[in-house]
Write a protein that binds this DNA or RNA. Structure first.
Lengths: 365, 365
DNA sequence: TTCGGTCTTGCATGCGTATGCAATGGCGGC
DNA sequence: GCCGCCATTGCATACGCATGCAAGACCGAA
């Protein structure tokens, strides 16, 4: 003990102006550095009395554990990497918020990487991984094979939110995409629409594809056609898609958009540039049910997808994988339903009120 | 060299399934660990040939530097802490996006902390600091004195975006709040309005106060009164504020909202609950000029505040402070202007078209 | 050929914390 | 009163990388 105190004394002289370390605390409390470490480690073997003494010394020095140093030895950084594009889409902003709040409840934080929407395998993303993150979450972005391989090798769980991938070893959490497509199709058919259109994100976005395929199958099975455009999940892209659709000689009377954000763009173009009355001349339905969808300016009928639930499931997968230490790819779906508002003509049956919300359920033929 | 190789060999056997380290690379390349370190350090003294050899070895092993370990010695983490509330407000989502993209251009990332809007000195934020972040940025959140003291002591620059504080040692970047208030007031007075109202964030938000005071001074100097409500910077809060204002016996004909987000809520309530025509019955003006403000659904007249510029200035302050190693509090303002759209009645003069944008400049009496 | 200088390289150590191991002390049971 | 056990504590070392220092390599000049 004398020796430890002596060493600490010698060192502390040199560091007058810096963060106090465990050694400084140890010196003040008259214990060893390991004791201090244990005082700050839950479940470590240390006497309550000693612990008190150490915590007090720490307090007077303003000591805060250096988490960088801690994660060097524990190999746990308590940092979750998050790569995201489309932060301007309120849906994803909400997802980030939910993730962040839920993670901070367990002392974890988000290291954020704003990906460009296009790039799948950003080389910068590789460097991003060097921070020893505990898990990697990708939203509205797809990972490269190399990236996933890298993560699997180092035991870092990878979860995609609202993306699909053929790459193995990646878990996904998504909304009920097929059901969304089918339900919206059934809703619009029941509402008496005749000329259908779909605005997707990109032709290759698997999540969007699922919605598109399910929607198209249902509608075509009833003898109607579907005009398809892609809006890149951006506002201006969707606006251009809507413009193109509404300029068709046989103008659609129902447009299903793969996201609320793109539905807003469609409503904008329909009202401003084509002077259409909603839903008399055109019905628009989205997916997500973001907060804005319920605002009077849009009052959008949409298939919901709950950010809070996506975040919850994502974290559950991460935790399970970290606990079990074996990669296991899971595919979870979070439940959604068709929220009926005023942007689409109503079918005569199937609408039920639950509290202040109106929901439509397909009547199986 | 033999000795180094031998040690590395002994160690590498135990770590077959893990991240390769510099020692593994050194072993493969037949050099020392320090050589590998130098190969990855810009400007370090190393022969080009050796460097090549090392990089190749690193590539075959899939080596990536461990940035956690690196920052333990360099005391630079290349991580910027960001505490934010109101991520659901598109303005702040955009600020985050801009910050993230600009920082990643210099190899830095954002460690995110989602603060609750109310809490000033979240104790969790203290723990957040333990990650040896290079700088701390707070947006839509105020720091406690203790927090700032802690940061200053460890040489971490603190920058507030869109907040004020009396705490010393904190830099701020904001929009032209006084000018915003004055300009909007002048615009509305010139537009012939008579009954003015203001919806702020909170009574204590200094940034909002500046807008409020400047707005109020101008309007009152012209002999009018101003009704004031607070919306907490939330949608529902602002909606309640608008509801209260529009229920007044002497209903306002002009409402100035301290943010676009709250202006959207006001428009919603005015249209849906009070059946008012905009701008015939009511003019609404916001602050921020978020993307949504230009959408047909709102087409909001608003005083702009550029997220990209806020981010740029914020990073400039951080870099300057880190380079000079001396805390120096700066207060920067980023320029904005009144973007004229259709949510407010127009004055007869002062409107100028610049490209596709319409701007209003006060005519000094 | 020799010497001084520059460029490379390896060695040793430090960064702040965690943890296996051994040493110590206290306590109950006999 | 003695022994064994457990709780507590300190010691030593590891984590992966950066860097001051010294040694070696190499070159040109004298």
């Amino acid at each position: 003990m004398q020796k430890a105190a002596k060493t600490a004394g010698a060192r502390s002289r040199a560091r007058y102006n810096r963060h106090p370390t465990e050694i400084d605390v140890a010196e003040l409390a008259g214990v060893s550095q390991s004791a201090v470490s244990r005082a700050f480690t839950a479940g470590a073997s240390i006497a309550a009395e000693t612990r008190e003494k150490i915590l007090e010394a720490a307090k007077t020095l303003g000591y805060q554990p250096n988490l960088i140093a801690r994660s060097l030895t524990t190999k746990r950084s308590n940092i979750v990497g998050l790569a995201i594009s489309s932060l301007e889409n309120p849906f994803y902003a909400q997802v980030v918020k939910e993730l962040s709040e839920r993670l901070s409840a367990t002392g974890r934080y988000i290291l954020m990487f704003a990906a460009s929407p296009g790039e799948a395998a950003d080389p910068r993303l590789e460097a991003f991984l060097s921070y020893q993150i505990d898990a990697l979450v990708l939203t509205a972005t797809s990972p490269s094979e190399a990236l996933v391989a890298h993560c699997r090798k180092s035991g870092v769980p990878v979860v995609l939110i609202n993306r699909e991938t053929k790459v193995a070893g990646v878990s996904t959490v998504r909304g009920e995409n097929r059901r969304a497509g089918e339900t919206v199709a059934a809703f619009l058919v029941a509402g008496g629409h005749k000329r259908f259109a779909f605005i997707g994100g990109t032709a290759v976005s698997t999540v969007g594809r699922e919605r598109e395929v399910a929607f198209g199958e249902y509608v075509r099975a009833r003898g109607y056609d579907v005009a398809v455009r892609y809006g890149d999940y951006t506002f201006t892209g969707a606006a251009a898609a809507a413009r193109s659709l509404l300029s068709l000689p046989d103008r659609p009377d129902a447009i299903f958009c793969a996201s609320d954000y793109m539905a807003f763009a469609t409503l904008d173009v329909a009202r401003r540039e084509f002077d259409l009355a909603i839903p008399r001349d055109l019905s628009v339905v989205g997916v997500d049910d973001v907060a804005e969808a319920s605002h009077a300016a849009y009052d959008l009928t949409t298939f919901s997808q709950h950010p809070a639930e996506l975040a919850r499931q994502t974290i559950a997968i991460i935790d399970a994988e970290m606990a079990r230490k074996r990669p296991r790819t899971e595919r979870r779906e979070v439940h959604g339903e068709l929220i009926v508002r005023s942007s689409a003509r109503l079918p005569e049956t199937g609408i039920s009120e639950t509290g202040s919300r109106r929901i439509w359920l397909p009547v199986h033929d």
